[in-house]
Each structure stands twice: as C-alpha cells, then as structure tokens.
Amino acid sequence: MSGLEAPRPMVKAEGVYKSFGRLEVLKGVDLEVMPGEVVVIIGPSGGGKSTFLRCINHLEKINAGRLWVDGELVGYRQKGDKLHELPDKEVAYKRSEIGMVFQSFNLFPHMTATENVMVAPVQVKGENKSQARERARTILERVGLAAKADVYPARLSGGQQQRVAIARALAMQPKLMLFDEPTSALDPELVGEVLDVMRELAESGMTMIVVTHEIGFAREVGDALLFMAEGVIVEFGKPREMVANPQHERTQQFLSKVL
C-alpha cells in the first residue's frame, strides 16, 4: 500500500454486534477487506459466520457497531451524529452492487438458467432484454454452462445449479461477492467444479468473502483466513501459516477436526 492515497477498504466492520432476541450471534467483529482481496472465514456452525455475511448486504440488521461497504454505511446514512435508516429502494440498490451466493443455491425454479441470470439486470438495472440475454449466455459460458442455458434448475445437478447462481450474481457486475458455504450442500464430487469457478473469479480480481469448510480452497486462493467462533474473530492471518501453525487453542481444535 504505497500509493499516494491509502486505498479505501471494500468492507470495514467495527465492533459489529448482532443478537436474535437473547441469542448473541455476533459480539463485536472488526474486519477490513481491501479491494481485490479474498477473505475466507472458517469456524464451527453457530459461530456467526453466515450472520456476519448477511449483515454485509443488510439481509440482517446489526444492533451495534458500524459496517461500511465501499466507504458507505450499510443500511444507514449518517447526518451529523444521527443515523437515518435508508429507504427500501436504496437498500435494494446497495444490495444490487453486492453479489451473494447461498448454500442452498436459491435459484428461481420457474425460470431457465438464462432467465435466472438475466432477470435482475433487466428488472433492476433496466438493461435491454436481448442485450441482457446475450450477456447471460456469455456469463453462463464463463462458468462452463453454455449447454445448459435453456434448462430449468430442477434438471441441473447441485454443482451446476450453484454455478448458475454464481453467474446470476455476476450478471449484476458486483463490486463484492459474498459466498455463504457455497459447497456445503453439494456431493463431494461436485465441489471441485464450483471451487474452480470461484478460483477463477478470485484470479480476475474480484473482492470476495467466502464462508466455507474447504480448507484447501482457503489455503490456495485466500489472501486472509479468519477463524470465527462464538460471535468473535478468534484468529486471523495468512491462510497457509494459520493452517500450518494455528496459534489459538480453539483454532487448533477446530482445524484438527477439519483437516
């Protein structure tokens, strides 16, 4: 970071706190993700990984702390020392700039692969239909699914569905991609094809936050690895070093079970 201006972090979290009723899920998370960085989050279930991801595109509202994406507060606008909740439309617009990939794919079952990919560019961005269709085909080709362009999701394997889901998110030309355990619902033999697409995406310079149990992916692709448990970031560092030599006892426990 030797430029004249320090680059602005793509995601910045300061003491992010979130609870569902009495259940405290995030207890003060601090994080900075720079543009082009791939941050991998690992940790036990219920540790708050997914919730943190969902806070970033405001699918969940945080109760305390601050969260910025590309320098702008998530879900709020600050005027003086007061926070104003953003209207639905602006929240929607902000979300359109952040891609999200879910564990259960969540493709729209009543649309073909191409329609899934083009629906948001057309309906949200007002892109021309034929142009969006063409672009959808190109993106599907990029994830290796040109042959399945006119197929409904029910006829696709899990790996193919997840690749369509990635294509759908990419069609909005996001500046940040969030992956919520993208391979956890897949048969072991299908995991590779999804990880390959993600690896390529990372190489193309996309900023990514990936919640996963794929330590191999974290080691090879990740720029930073976070271990999250009980609502806090227990340990973070360079993936290779951290996997090889975890410092914290809790991390050691977890990694010994996963590896």
Binding site: D88, A92, R95, E97, F102, S104, F108, A120, M172
Partner: peptide, 21 residues
C-alpha cells in the same frame, strides 16, 4: 421458501418486484 425472497433481495429487487417476479 424464504431463500427465494432472500436471493431476490440480494440481487437488488425491491419487495414489490420480488413479489411479482
């Protein structure tokens, strides 16, 4: 399913568009 509305929301669709599309 809720996953459907979440997926639509994450793509930037408003409530109304999510409902309709």
């Amino acid at each position: 399913g809720e996953g459907q509305t979440e997926a639509a929301a994450s793509l930037g669709m408003t409530r109304l568009k999510t409902m309709r599309l």
